[in-house]
Each structure stands twice: as structure tokens, then as C-alpha cells.
Design a protein around this nucleic acid. Sequence first.
DNA 1: ATAAAACCTAAAGCCGCTATAGCTTCAAGA
DNA 2: TCTTGAAGCTATAGCGGCTTTAGGTTTTAT
Lengths: 145, 145
Amino acid sequence: MGIGTLASRAGCQVQTVRYYEQIGLLPPAMRNAGNQRRYDNATLRRLTFIRHARDFGFSVEAVRELLGMADHPDMPCDHADAIAKRHLEEVEARIERLSALRDELKRMVAQCAGGRVDECRIVEVLSDHQQCLHAADHGGQQTIR
Amino acid sequence: MGIGTLASRAGCQVQTVRYYEQIGLLPPAMRNAGNQRRYDNATLRRLTFIRHARDFGFSVEAVRELLGMADHPDMPCDHADAIAKRHLEEVEARIERLSALRDELKRMVAQCAGGRVDECRIVEVLSDHQQCLHAADHGGQQTIR
DNA sequence: ATAAAACCTAAAGCCGCTATAGCTTCAAGA
DNA sequence: TCTTGAAGCTATAGCGGCTTTAGGTTTTAT
Ligand SMILES: [Zn+2]
Ligand SMILES: [Zn+2]
Ligand SMILES: [Zn+2]
Ligand SMILES: [Zn+2]
């Protein structure tokens, strides 16, 4: 199949497939007489695995390792498990951080009475971190992903 | 004060201050005889506002609008409120998506018995989206932030 | 034969900074 | 006053994970 068919079957964009080839997640594709990439079902399965892992939020580097392990079915799965556990922890940390953020935002929005900017609770809170309840949960230089 | 003092009081890096000036969040700074930036307390307050809003996860464009409104205290605050509400909704959507992800990851990790790769539940699930419970909650081409 | 759709490569753009390189200026101690 | 080291300057590149654009070639359908 061509790259368009492959991409649509895997649920991603054509350029993404070429990008994955470029960074070595997919092997260099076979070409037809006119230099266009041709794929088989093995590559479709590989790409589907990649997309699924990415949808799970695994980084490209993690996906690279997971793919490497999927290529060796007779090896022990310890490392795959470690990667998944670490990712789970990261996801849980993000959820906690976002939840604190959500609470603070809710409080902010709820207290706005809809008047002038200088009476607005939103602008007021943003101007003064002291007015935050869970002050420790944001204000560092961490990202909020 | 100099840029280093400003940055450390606002809790950000020196380069970030210069970056904010470059993208127009901060006005072009006054310079001393040796071409170094000098700041007053008004700029410190503005930078603190920016950092606080960024810590809340507002995008730079949202911060730009919020700043514009904070500069006009006599205007109605409708738009600030709309921005905050929309951001709250986005945060809630992220939390929901991440929670579904967390559940799926937990299930995956819990079911791994620690054997060979070809018996590993993690590799198995990643290979086959059918095995996911909340299949709809991931698998699109959305990002998982 | 022609035109539209799909494909090709290479390079730039996105976000929000962060880091590097190679310079100049400032502040404090001897 | 001289010297050193910290702090500042500009310009540019890099991060992740793609997406977009530009300018071409090949395939496919009529
Ligand atoms: Zn308001
Ligand atoms: Zn705060
Ligand atoms: Zn396992
Ligand atoms: Zn799935």
C-alpha cells in the first residue's frame, strides 16, 4: 500500500509517517519505480503500535524502547513494565497538579461578580499569589502539563 | 534594579525576561549608560502578573489579553472572565482525558505477570487498541496534555 | 492527452522558553 | 588604580513532536 493508505489506516497524517521514518521509529521504506514508498502489513502493525503508545502519552523515546522490546518476544518484560509504571506515575502527578489548578481556577471564576476590571476577582488573584489557597501547587517554574 | 534582580524577585530566569520583552509582553526596558536594562517596581508587578498567569496555565496570548485588560481598570471584566472560564474548561477536559489514560495504564500495569515479552500485557495492549476498555478516550490524534 | 490527486524532498514554523557562543560592562577587593 | 569575576549584552540554535509550506514529480482517472 502507499503512504496515504497506511496513514489513514493507522489514523495519522502522511507527514507523520515520513517523520517517524526520519527519526528511525519506522525502517526506511521500500520504494516503487517512481520513488514512492510502499508498505506491507507488518509496517502497518508497527505504525499502529507507535500511534497507540503515543496516544497513551508515552514519549517517542519510550516508544522506541517499547518497540525494541516488542521485537524480542523471548526476552523478559521487566523493562517494559518499568517504563509503563513510570509513565503511570507521571500521569498521576500531572492529574494532581491540574486538579489543584482547577480548584484555584474554579474559585477565581466563581468569585467574579461581573463588574469592572478593578473589582474583578480574576485580575485580582492573578496580580497577587498571596490570594491563592493552594499556593504551593503552582508558582514554581514547572510546566503544568 | 537590574535584570537579574528583577528575574529572581519574579521567580523566573533572566533569559525569560528578555524573551518577554522580545514578544512584547514587557515594554522595551530603559537602559543605563552601559546599555544594560534597568527596571522599576511597576515592571516587577507586571512580570509577576505574567508569571502567575503562566503558572495557572494560561497561554501567552491569553496573558497578553489579560494584561491588556488589567491596564484598563474601568472597563467591564466580561472578557477576562470568559478567558478564565474557557481555560477552566480546557483544564477540566485535560483532567478527564488523563484520568481515562491513568485507568487504562493502571489496568495494563496490574495485569502484567512479569514474564516474557510475548506474554506481557503491556506490549499486548499497546499492540491492539481493541483490548482497551475506554477505547474512545484515546486513539484520536489529539494531544494528551 | 490532460488534469487532479497523491507523492517526493528540504526547510521552516509552532509553543514557551532554555542554552550556547562570544563579546562588553559592572562591582568589589588588593 | 588595577584586576578579576560576576553579570549583562546580542544573536542564534535547540527542545519535542509534529505540521506547514514551497516547489517539484508521479500516479490515476477521465
Ligand atoms: Zn470579573
Ligand atoms: Zn498563586
Ligand atoms: Zn510485562
Ligand atoms: Zn487503546
